[in-house]
Design a protein around this nucleic acid. Structure first.
Lengths: 291, 291
DNA sequence: CTATTAGTTCGAAAATACTGAACAATTAAC
DNA sequence: GTTAATTGTTCAGTATTTTCGAACTAATAG
């Protein structure tokens, strides 16, 4: 394969300017150089790119394909260089952040806004994951940073973890729920008859962990934390919810915390990042997240 | 932008072979040449690609990005050359055929099988379109050849049309349909009370043409001919269907043709292709289709 | 028929890429 | 710890490729 990007640039110029001569002018070269470049490329590739029709040359079908796809190649090449420059500047070309659904994404927006003021040129993408999802995302390199999610079962090569927040989970029900008539603290037997709202695990490969399902009771599976809150709010079922996400609903009385016999569970939330990642954006975000 | 594909090839070799020296060997060059190429690229791009760590060099983050994306660029470049070669051989790189839903795609498979025996290397894609869809597909360059579909409203620059088949449309109903008790031929008043099955137009931009809708009667819109046949077969409604597509159902008596007062409509089916397309595959298919 | 423009050819000059020998730095072997 | 082997670099010289400019051919416009 003897294709060169320079030759493609010449082809592009010829087509856009309409002639070898004007292409030469545009590229600050002499006409004979353009002829030479085209002839050399034709010889290297083994087929004619232009059909000489009098004093004006026209592209052959193969030449047209070469030009069309070659232009895309030129654009791609420029993007490669741009990405490398961006990384060289210390800022990553892109940064993927996976946020666990127990986190309120809105609380993250101010940090994002602050970051954008830095004019780093980093393309930041945010995805919402459930339970094992954040772990899976960073292991499979889909994410550079995770916010929230469970701790690693064992140390993972090249990934650092840090506890970020003690998320307290409360057992709550909607304000008119029948469970409110019972004597506190509730026993497992009290709760058993009622539908439990659980979040479907977004980790497709990890062993499924239905979070806090409390035995084999009737369950309603929902996609994320938002839906779980809504479901419990509308009395579709009961379950544990992270305190910091439902504080307003507790204050207004729409949701009520009920004491239960077993200890209210505490889950450690973890932030994770790739320790091999030396990008400034990743470090900036990790610093911010750890407060 | 001073990036060259040759330099990327060198980077790739260095990474795969693990050292400048073995890369040089693999590329039939001398070590100093490899050093020269790398240094020149670094100078041209304006950043370090390798960090000299003793006698063994390691990629900088920017160098890693350059290599990763550069490899994709190399693959893409090879594909560009391959495509151009393919077109130069006389066969197109790819050929898109749009078939109108009134046609039975299965009738087209033998022709496809015959074509594949030619070992042309052409990537053939087939899409199913409805009503105006084939026309739109060829005008918007999504298709190279269309089979079936309406005639052009006016001559279209660079596209040739040829009538291919007189598709006869029959008014048919399911075998137990109430309309069968009436006296033939049916009048418009006879038909009016019953739901008419119409195919939703897949042409998004053309003015909507609800095919043979016979005034403002209750309608059930379906996505394609297959669904329309099924709908009429299950007695959900009545309407015109192309004779050649329902012959077996007529023979078995599951669908019944009913004579109607107005002439049974005849629609010309057209085959279209781009007259500028000089590819052998397009010509081969057009010849076959026109019998 | 002449002037103009487009593209090519060709020898010379310039720029670029490659080579091989010498050297420095590091790792492996003993 | 010393020696040997391996790696990468430098540098001067050489080979190759690219570019240039002038001369030339062919087609088109006036």
């Amino acid at each position: 394969m003897k294709l060169t990007l320079d030759a493609l640039t010449v082809l592009d110029a010829i087509d856009r300017k309409g002639s070898f001569a004007s292409a030469a002018q545009a590229l600050f070269r002499v006409p004979s150089t353009v002829t030479y470049t085209v002839q050399k490329l034709e010889e290297d590739l083994g087929f004619a790119i232009f059909k000489r029709a009098g004093r004006r040359s026209v592209l052959t079908p193969a030449g047209q394909v070469l030009l069309d796809q070659g232009r895309q190649l030129l654009v791609a090449a420029q993007e490669v260089v741009n990405s490398a420059h961006q990384v060289n500047s210390g800022w990553e070309a892109e940064l993927n952040i996976a946020i666990d659904t127990v986190w309120d994404i809105q609380r993250f927006y101010p940090i994002l806004a602050e970051f954008q003021k830095l004019n780093s040129g980093v393309q930041v993408s945010i995805s919402e994951e459930v339970m094992g999802g954040t772990l899976e995302a960073i292991i499979e390199q889909r994410a550079d940073i995770t916010i929230g999610g469970p701790p690693p079962v064992s140390a993972i090569q090249g990934i650092q973890f840090e506890s970020i927040l003690n998320s307290q989970w409360l057992f709550v029900v909607a304000k008119a729920h029948p469970l409110m008539t019972l004597l506190l603290p509730l026993t497992e037997q009290d709760i058993e008859p009622y539908v439990s709202i659980v979040i479907r695990d977004s980790a497709t490969q990890s062993p499924i962990r239905a979070h806090r399902s409390l035995g084999a009771r009737p369950m309603l599976r929902v996609a994320n934390m938002e839906q779980k809150i809504q479901a419990q709010l509308q009395g579709l079922g009961v379950g544990f919810l992270p305190k910091h996400k439902i504080q307003p609903l507790l204050d207004s009385g729409e949701l009520v915390e009920l004491e239960i016999e077993k200890d209210a569970p505490v889950t450690q939330q973890y932030c994770a990042w790739r320790s091999t990642n030396t990008g400034r954006a990743a470090q900036w975000f990790v610093d911010k997240i750890l407060d």
